[in-house]
Amino acid sequence: MRLVIALPYLWLVVFFLLPLGLVLGLSLATNAPDLAPPVELGLSFASFKLLFTDDLYLAAWLSSLRIAATSTLVCLLLGYPMAYAIARATPPRRPLLLMLVILPFWTSFLIRVYAWMGLLAENGILNQFLRWSGLMSDPGTILGTEWAIHLGIVYAYLPFMVLPLYTALEKLDWSLLEAASDLGARPLPAFLTVTLPLSLPGIVAGCLLVFIPAVGEFVIPDLLGGTRTLMIGKVLWDEFFTNSDWPLASAVAICLLILLVGPILLFQRQQQRSLERT
């Protein structure tokens, strides 16, 4: 019995705290390219200092946050009606609709991103269609722009938005909406004063599930995006692989973690409060 209780903690220590400690230790080390591994352990804050003084990193942070935030917003705007429609569908239909949302996960993530490359390239399927149909003779190229990154992130993470929203909306007692309408609320105010606040936990969970991985996203901007878009995931990759600077790469990783712990704690507190309520 004790073993069963200890297991999750053991898991946490071995697969979370230990690696985290390692990365933290690395972030405080000094870069030493002539060593293997290329670090000199110590207590140096040089990597962090560089991270906060060089405006290139700041720009990378800002553009990562901006892209993650807009993608999250688009996911929310697309995902909410989807989740709402699924939650209001007849119970026998819901599993089918949910399945359709989850279905893309059955294909490898990488293959799906490559498929988008095929769609969005200069001579890709989309442009071929536009030219063939005569809608646009010179459609330009979406691949390699920030549009493509947004598209990729929204496409890849939409299910992470829909599922928690669905869970929240499915629990919603629809007679509350009837009550609101009965008390004189038009559909929009009824939505804003009843549905929205009651689905807030789902909104927060969905946004975090999309926002957090989107900030550190590497594959999508690398494959779909242009070189003009700087994202922190790419910076981390560059520091680790191209510059072989493990301390700086670790410092980026630690900052990413700290940045994202804030919203998670906020979410937890909100969850706690809603638990106390009921």
Partner: peptide, 20 residues
């Protein structure tokens, strides 16, 4: 290149690529 030179070059390179 040594570590400093590598960093300088990578930094310049990133600036070029991102059009800054």
């Amino acid at each position: 290149a040594n570590a400093e030179q590598t960093r300088e070059r990578t930094r310049l390179w990133t600036a070029i690529k991102t059009g800054r």
